[in-house]
Nucleic acid binder design. Structure first.
Length: 436
RNA sequence: GGGAUCGUAGCUCAGUUGGUUAGAGCGCCUGCCUGUCACGUAGGAGGUCGCGGGUUCGAGUCCCGUCGGUCCCGCCA
């Protein structure tokens, strides 16, 4: 009978039997005539115990991160909980060419790494249980996002990332040479997802977007994963916030259900999502000013400090980790934002969603009437001719529609309490990093 | 685009008012150790103190320049 090949999460089902298991060596403790080898595999880790001379000789040739196939008997650990494998055979599948530049087997060492070391040695640091857990959680965020939207008849799309024009102008676009013509990397699937509302009514996309902005902060990337949604036949922006409210609730619940181990590595607490409070920008600014010390300057806008204050306020008042900010002035939104006329100012039917002090989503209703869109563009000095392909869908008739986009790395950063969004990207691209 | 701050061993850091041979922990190498799990233990290797210039009898330490890192603002997800 063939020895069964299992992974570390299946140990308990094989107590007493001989199994094969493969993984990378995470730690080695040689006690002389006894050695302990912890290997890490795709879903956990397990300790191997070697006490036979032939096996011990092989163990002594191994180094941390060596990939191995082990064969032995699954036994309960004499002390503590869980299981270990009494080694009969160990095969080293390759030999690391270098000793490791950083110690990834010890959690405290991984936690202490500087950001640049963490990223310079990304192929290695990504292997540590705590680092890789970030990306398991992101995968579940994506699954949950897809699952929720598919159930509501949204269709997943893939829009082009090489584009001829930007959505707002052009300053923040990466330029590239497209067979001698000027092209850009898409900063958003905005136009395409709107166009697809005309075809499929409800669409979503999970894909990278590119921003050529020269910022250098813990919340910006020049390439990030945008989780985009767009839907037709809405009443107004509140339909979108209703949808987003349920969507993030589902995303957090799914991560809570299937990522217990990963969350506990970070000590992360899943937010309880009820009805997310909605405040207008001017209400938010008033709240922020009420917290400011006397004599300090009155805020007129929502800066990063204000975002933290407003989130803290709603956490204390309504036990909500999330808050919608609505009613942004039309002037600070893109030309396609639907206007919302108020008594003495021109507002927009758009919103941001803040999570624990950071903006994770922007969205809103879009202008769907062709003439209104043309005049909105002209009002901002944009030439409709440059957007004529986008404008086609409006010429053929578009329903009231809108959407939003969630920043994947940002939501992961906030959930796990990461010090930088760069840690939530596999291979982050920032103002001075293109490698690895 | 504007600003702040830091560069000392593979990693994380200490290094006094400028003083003689630059340190620690972990890792690495060679041993010893049959229940380790931050294993223990004996020994060892490893440094152009980012780089260039200056001040000084003397610079890791002070000054100027430069390169790199980290962070903040504007802007954004």
């Amino acid at each position: 009978m063939m020895t069964e090949e299992i992974s570390s999460s299946q140990l308990s089902k094989h107590t007493g039997s001989t199994v094969r298991i493969h993984g990378h060596i995470q730690s080695l403790r040689d006690m002389g005539n006894l050695a302990f080898v912890v290997i890490r595999d795709m879903d956990g880790s397990v300790q191997l115990v070697a006490d036979e001379q032939e096996v011990l000789l092989i163990v002594r040739q191994a180094a941390p991160e060596t990939p191995v196939i082990a064969e032995g008997v699954v036994v309960a650990r004499p002390q503590g909980q869980g299981f270990e494998i009494q080694l009969k055979e160990l095969t080293l599948l390759s030999t690391p060419a270098l000793s490791l530049p950083v110690e990834i087997g010890k959690q405290s060492k991984v936690d202490g790494l500087s950001l640049s070391t963490m990223l310079d040695y990304r192929p290695l640091t990504l292997r540590s249980p705590k680092v890789r857990s970030i990306f398991k959680i992101e995968a579940v965020f994506c699954e949950a996002f897809r699952e929720f939207l598919r159930e509501r008849q949204f269709t997943e799309i893939h829009s082009p990332k090489i584009v001829a024009t930007g959505t707002e102008g052009g300053a923040q676009l990466f330029k590239l040479n497209y067979f001698g013509r000027e092209a850009f990397l898409a900063q958003s699937p905005q136009f395409y997802k709107q166009i697809m509302v005309g075809a499929l009514e409800r669409v979503f996309e999970i894909a990278p977007v590119y921003r050529a902005e020269e910022h250098d902060t813990t919340r910006h990337l020049n390439e990030y994963i945008s989780m985009d949604v767009e839907m037709g036949f809405i009443e107004n922006e509140h339909d979108l916030m209703d949808l987003l409210n349920k969507l993030v609730k589902h995303m957090f619940e799914k991560v809570s259900q299937s990522c217990g181990d990963e969350l506990s590595l970070w000590g992360a607490k899943i937010p309880e999502v009820g009805t997310i409070p909605r405040v207008t920008l001017s209400e938010a600014v008033d709240i922020i000013n009420s917290y400011q010390k006397k004599g300090s300057k009155e805020k007129t806008d929502l800066d990063p400090e204000g975002e933290k204050i407003i989130c803290e306020h709603f956490y204390q008042k309504e036990n909500s980790d999330l808050v919608f900010i609505t009613g942004y002035p039309l002037s600070v939104r893109p030309f396609y934002a639907m206007p919302l006329p108020l008594q003495n100012e021109m507002s927009s039917r758009s919103f941001d969603l803040l999570f624990r002090g950071l903006e994770i989503t922007t969205g809103g209703q879009r202008i769907h009437r062709h003439e209104e869109l043309i005049s909105a563009m002209q009002g901002r000095g944009l030439d409709p001719e440059a957007f004529k392909d986008y404008l086609q869908c409006f010429q053929y008739g578009m329903p009231p529609h809108g959407g939003f986009a969630i920043g994947l790395e940002r939501i992961a950063k906030q959930l796990l309490g990461l010090p930088s969004v760069k840690l939530a990207a596999l291979f982050p691209r920032d103002i001075n990093r293109m490698t690895p």
